[in-house]
């Protein structure tokens, strides 16, 4: 069952990477990174159990924290003036509509 869950998480990670690469808007990419981070936390905890080394949970905790901090960082910086008036963003939104 652990192996099955690991494989499921890996499949979801691949889907997340695809969305991160193709994602039409910036926010899609941020969303993909966020999901990828959560899935990495799960993958590391599962791998720790599969390989019988629960030390790995320390790394999973670091990931959960770092993931939060980097998402907040991304949002903080995407609020700044340079990003808001960027031609790329409006271009991509119109392309999508």
């Amino acid at each position: 069952m652990l192996i099955a869950a690991t494989i499921a998480i890996l499949v979801v990670m691949i889907l997340g990477i695809i969305r991160g690469i193709t994602g039409p808007t910036l926010y899609d990419r941020i969303l993909a990174v966020n999901m990828f981070g959560t899935k990495t936390v799960l993958l590391i905890s599962l791998l720790g159990f599969v390989m019988g080394r629960p030390d790995f949970l320390d790394i999973a905790i670091v990931y959960a924290l770092i993931n939060f901090i980097s998402i907040i960082g991304v949002l903080h910086f995407s609020d700044s003036a340079v990003f808001r008036h960027d031609p790329h963003d409006s271009e991509s939104t119109t392309k999508e509509s």
Binding site: M13, G16, I17, G20, I21, G23, L26, R29, I30, A32, V33, F36, G37, T40, L43, I44, L47, G48, M51, R53, D55, F56, I59, Y63, S70, V74, S78, F83, H88
Partner: peptide, 27 residues
Amino acid sequence: RDLFAVVMLSGIFGLLSASFFVAMDAV
């Protein structure tokens, strides 16, 4: 050409390589 997207992808790369290190037992 969007550097912000490049940074996002490099974040994904970091997460991926760390899972790789975990799988290789290099804690």
